[in-house]
Design a protein around this nucleic acid. Sequence first.
DNA 1: GTGAAACTCTGGATCGTTCCAAGACATGGT
DNA 2: ACCATGTCTTGGAACGATCCAGAGTTTCAC
Lengths: 345, 345
Amino acid sequence: MAVPRSGGHISAAPPTLADVAELAGVSRQTVSNAVNNPDLLRADTLARVQEAIDKLGYQPNRAARSLRTRASHLIGLRMPALQEGTANAMMDRFVHSFVEAAAETGYHVLLFYGDPADPLDGYDELLRSTAVDAFVVTDTHLGGQQTTWLQSRRARFVSFGRPWTQPDAKHPWVDVDLAYGAEIATEHLIERGHTKIAWIGWHKDSLLGEERRSGWFHAMHAHGLSTTGLASRTEDSISSGKAAADAILDETQPTALVCASDTLAMGVLHSLFERRLRLGEDVAVVGFDDSQVAQTVPPGITSVRPPLEEAARELVKALEELLATPSYAAPGVMLKPALTVRGSS
Amino acid sequence: MAVPRSGGHISAAPPTLADVAELAGVSRQTVSNAVNNPDLLRADTLARVQEAIDKLGYQPNRAARSLRTRASHLIGLRMPALQEGTANAMMDRFVHSFVEAAAETGYHVLLFYGDPADPLDGYDELLRSTAVDAFVVTDTHLGGQQTTWLQSRRARFVSFGRPWTQPDAKHPWVDVDLAYGAEIATEHLIERGHTKIAWIGWHKDSLLGEERRSGWFHAMHAHGLSTTGLASRTEDSISSGKAAADAILDETQPTALVCASDTLAMGVLHSLFERRLRLGEDVAVVGFDDSQVAQTVPPGITSVRPPLEEAARELVKALEELLATPSYAAPGVMLKPALTVRGSS
DNA sequence: GTGAAACTCTGGATCGTTCCAAGACATGGT
DNA sequence: ACCATGTCTTGGAACGATCCAGAGTTTCAC
């Protein structure tokens, strides 16, 4: 029988290895083996121990296990900054996919908060206190600060987003080929008969933005279409998206617009709304990210959908390898997005 | 000097309490006190220890601390099911606010995944392995299964959402008064001169839906307006929102519609789009949740915005009390939402 | 100068698990 | 019988922190 520890208490403390061992009539180590290396035990012993485990509802204490094995089975993920007034909801879906993928390999996700002004805030404490086994970094397009720093601290991590500014980075990463995304978006519009297809993207210093733009550019030229006066570069906000659309609609009168984000696409919609133009009939629009907004706005915005579920799975896979083999250096994985066609095109 | 532990290794193991103690020339316990009860130390000793801590970059090992104190400083949060094709993005903002609020009191959030088909999946394992100190439950409108079960397991938890089906529940909770939300939404439309204001809500068996509906109902009657033929109840999806709007626009020709969710509001928008009616000019629409969709769709949808940041803070406050005093029984906290007015009204 | 109270600091035990090295037990060949 | 050879099981030590009880030191009133 399990001996009650702190006497008097009504709420029973969770059973320990020792409790199970006593009930099953074996030693602690045998129970530990039953849990972690069942094939070391003789079949009948294993059955007996298993029975005791089930009976007591035993579950290894995570803190004790972590202390001994130096592994917490937690992956740190810094809460991305929330962007009000934009359509950027990709992180939501990514976090969801990641938590799900991680769960399948026995990992949980530790969400932490960091001061948005300091891209490194929060990492250090978790690293020093060995609270997590590894991190997932998501905002690589903001510069390589996080990854460089983590690397210098010999922390284990994988990143969703390629190491734009560090060609020599050795950590595993997964990214989505959004140049390709822009290409299929543009080709989709060409197929639909459009020839004057505008691009509304981000400022030139955004590598991410330039990459997407190149997809549009290549598709246009591959089909012998001119791009003159059809490209616009601005900030990722609705108001600047609207301004860019206003300007380009006045000047060049394109029949279709490809936008570097759903946020910019919404800017375009604002412009159309004001001009009383019908989305999908008078002007076609394609966005990026397949946000809830793209999914729900009538008549639906055609959008480039990044395969976040797959990205999460790939990251978890890389993470497993990394944690098993500290020296593991994976080649980056580039995934192809798909186009979700809706009424806007 | 700290003695290197596992010889040969290049990557230094994190410093321990003992390392700090040795460097500062005090005992382990004194270092522990310096960290946890600094006022127990003499000023000069504290300074010396602090210096050693800084020099080594010491941070208490979380696993060891958890093991001893039986507290992980982690709050469990089950990843809410992701709803594609809807405008329900409230959870995103809530999780964000919660992580931020929790961080301020030294808690981190452990995100875990549970099979959507089983509302209890995932809780048990974390509870048994003492991985978290408490849970935050969010889907209370789906029935009291989770809270009842947690209560029976003597788990500590708070809930975002009142215990609809358990009037005798003892756990702390925080909720948003959305009857009030519907009321101010309706009154806003009345102020704007509307008299025929329709309600598009959820099925009768949704207590949450009926509550919101009552706000509309009271506001209408308080102003002597009829509600006959103006209420519609359906599912929370775009297509059924559209169907409901179609029916009610044909039959009763309201000039304004209050919707129980932004998703339903988007359904209404689809209906308007098809009828070539202008949102905000021909027909006014108000939604619930202040989702990204409401924020970005031109010309913006007026929406009832739940104070999620405040809710998160209240929950964390309750959690602190609960963890300090296990018998703590707080009265529920009801928060008032505000109306964010946009072009749709 | 003495004693007691208050303040500081210390060493050993402990939380629940896994690592380690060795003991107990069967099995099989000589 | 005996010893090698595995297979299975065991008790003690360790992970790094905090709890606890007691030892050492200072402070201060008398």
